[in-house]
């Protein structure tokens, strides 16, 4: 599902221009795997996830995700790839505040190159799958943190992408909600979904059968 060779990236923002964020990162993730990437703050976990998700194009090395080489893709092709092949779950949920839960979940279908049949039904089904049946008309402000994150998961799953990328998905959740989300991700993995989670959360890392650790821009396998 993911094949990365010698990925490298340097810091481009103000303050430490040119400092390495990722250095010689190589990674293989097979279809149906559930992988947790852990590491201290500032180690480049989120950056790695953004590179894997085609959100950050300024990297060196070779990267293939879901059979597609991400180097050299133009904006349109990369956007189509994100839409079809990836589902994102973010720490801050990143739901669109003026859309209700159903419309938020249906959002990826609006950017699909071909019309998606029965979008509303599929969105409602996705919400039901994450335990939010009956809350379709609620706006994000009317949902708890855990519910918002489950809406985000439903949104990520709408177009049934082969790869789910989660960036600190339990970072803003209480213990109970975090536990429910872990269970949900394990359940998805059980159904064959490939999941890559970047996390600080030890329990979340433990829920994944495989853990990789990123330190000082370098990735290593954690032996259990």
């Amino acid at each position: 599902m993911i094949s990365a060779r010698a990925l490298a990236k340097r810091w481009e923002g103000p303050g430490a221009e040119g400092a390495p964020v990722l250095a010689d990162v190589s990674l293989e993730v097979g279809a149906g795997e559930f992988v947790a990437i852990t590491g201290p703050s500032g180690s480049g976990k989120s950056t790695l996830l953004h590179v894997l998700g085609g959100l950050d194009r300024a990297f060196e090395g070779e990267l293939r995700v879901a059979g597609q080489s991400l180097r050299g893709l133009d904006d349109r092709a990369l956007s189509r790839f994100r839409n079809a092949a990836l589902g994102f779950v973010f720490q801050s949920f990143h739901l669109v505040p003026h859309l209700d839960a159903l419309a938020n979940v249906a959002l990826p279908a609006r950017f699909a190159p071909a019309p998606v049949a029965d979008v509303r039904e599929r969105a409602a089904e996705a919400l039901g799958r994450v335990g939010l049946a009956g809350k379709e008309r609620r706006r994000p402000s009317e949902l708890s943190g855990g519910e918002r994150q489950r809406v985000a998961v439903a949104r990520a799953l709408l177009l049934r992408p082969p790869l789910l990328l989660c960036d600190e998905p339990t970072g803003n959740l209480d213990a109970a909600s975090g536990g429910a989300l872990r269970t949900l991700l394990q359940s998805l993995h059980g159904e064959g979904q490939t999941v890559v989670v970047v996390t600080h959360d030890a329990a979340m890392a433990a829920a994944a059968p495989r853990e990789l650790r990123l330190e000082a821009g370098r990735l290593s396998e954690v032996r259990r």
């Binding site: 904006d75 349109r76 956007s79 189509r80 994100r82 839409n83 079809a84 994102f88």
Partner: peptide, 11 residues
Amino acid sequence: VLRALGATRRD
């Protein structure tokens, strides 16, 4: 978010 979900710059 829209870009992550597949919106192009043109969108």
